[in-house]
Design a protein around this nucleic acid. Structure first.
Lengths: 250, 250
DNA sequence: TTTTTTTGTAAAATTTTTGTAATAATCGGG
DNA sequence: CCCGATTATTACAAAAATTTTACAAAAAAA
């Protein structure tokens, strides 16, 4: 099982658009569980289900979830106790589901540490909206995913956050296009980029066959890098095809 | 608008056990507002109240709150719009209060960015429990303290709570937008902010490609900072991209 | 080798982007 | 409804980036 909570300090592989939310559902009614899964799975929720409190506590402890859905009525332990136990060792989001919707229960559950309390009678759409609200909030808590760490290749330092390009610690004063071209090529050393491709990465413009502008950008990039086109250290010409960034030998 | 709070000069915005939660209540029913205040104040909630949407948006933008309580029915703007506008520029916790408790409204509000949706008919005890649940969660999220602590960079002093900007101890008399722009950029020196991004941080408005208003704000900001656009000390132009705050060398 | 194609690059031409003053529109109070 | 302050738009000069042009040089093809 994959493991990264919203709160984990781990290298936060910040769940991309694709990766589903990992849900632990603690509920002993198989029929309701199926219903819930069926409804939520299309919205990128991935379920682990346990049918009793003890197993729920155990699973919550041994794996990482984005959110826990907890039924209050369980065959073994009282839901409130399960909530308390999980909250005792984790800050994971917990949403209580309950058939028996008493104000006192709601208040106690929320005080103990539930993030929301949703009657089972609620429409699936509202449940979805509430889960998303809770997940949104905990995602905000996650250490802001490192946007894009600076790229370091050989003696080059390319930082997209600041658009700064250094060679041996000294600024190269690249223009926007030069930076972008160098950065994109340096991200994948050795890969050959056609002129069309480079232009499309960098400009919103059509490539005409006699367009030499890319060559000019390469040329001035080389000048700033003190690179010699005949025996280049950084940007190599692949005749008839395009250019590539040379994989540093080190 | 009644402002009860006065963020004194206390250097530590960090709400210790003692410091109250700062609540912005947007609701035009004075009677309900009073009731709420009366009930919640003993639990360490400190209220600022605005009776309409426009003022609410404005206040939310110009001061820092721990949580916003938003009525859906307002005399001027639709509550949903207010929610959208506030959420657009802030991640503050927002709990919707509504007399008219329709599932569709709940879903839409939660989707737009509300943290919870509580019918006005709810018992004050449950409201309290729900507010605490939301606050607990966002407290876990944010080193929120820093967010409202005055920012000191180089010879600049920027206090978001009071919107006060000093340079070498002297006030810069920035407008709201100028302050926000400077503040947001100064929070992350060296990072490049596109015009779109700056505008979205500062205004709830769409960016049109020929919009020069950001440039104008930068221009007047520079004038007030006595900054020269050609060899700037504070705000550097990143041609083709946007602007950034220069990391002070010291 | 000769011819053809492709690339490198200086310099010129062009386009885009930015800075800012002036003007217009908008907002927030009284 | 008017007033002052703030914000947005317009316009144009200035600056800088990008593209085009032109031709030399290198590589590939014949």
């Amino acid at each position: 099982m994959t493991t990264v909570t919203a709160f984990s300090t781990a290298p936060a592989p910040a769940r991309g658009e694709a990766a589903p939310y990992r849900v632990l559902l603690i509920d002993d009614d198989p029929q309701y569980c199926s219903l819930l899964q069926e409804y939520l799975e299309p919205y990128s929720f991935e379920f682990t289900v346990t049918g009793n409190g003890a197993a729920g506590i155990e699973t919550a402890r041994s794996a990482v979830f984005d959110i826990i859905l907890l039924d209050m009525f369980l065959p073994d332990i009282n839901g409130m106790e399960v909530l308390k136990a999980i909250r005792h060792t984790s800050t994971v989001s917990i949403v209580v589901l309950s058939a028996h919707n008493e104000e006192t229960d709601r208040i106690v559950a929320l005080e103990i540490g539930a993030d929301d309390y949703v009657p089972k009678a609620f429409s699936p759409r509202e449940l979805l909206a509430r889960l998303r609200a809770v997940l949104r909030r905990s995602a905000a808590a996650a250490p802001a995913q490192e946007e894009s760490a600076p790229l370091v290749v050989g003696d080059l330092y390319l930082d997209q956050r600041t658009m700064e390009a250094l060679r041996g610690g000294k600024s190269l004063s690249l223009t926007h296009i030069e930076f972008q071209m160098l950065y994109r090529m340096a991200c994948d050393p050795g890969r050959v980029f056609s002129r069309e491709h480079l232009l499309s990465l960098v400009r919103d413009r059509d490539f005409c066959p006699f367009d030499r502008s890319i060559d000019m950008h390469i040329s001035s990039l080389r000048r700033k890098l003190c690179d010699d086109s005949r025996s280049p250290m950084y940007v190599k010409t692949i005749r008839g095809v395009g250019y590539c960034f040379i994989k540093p030998s080190g």
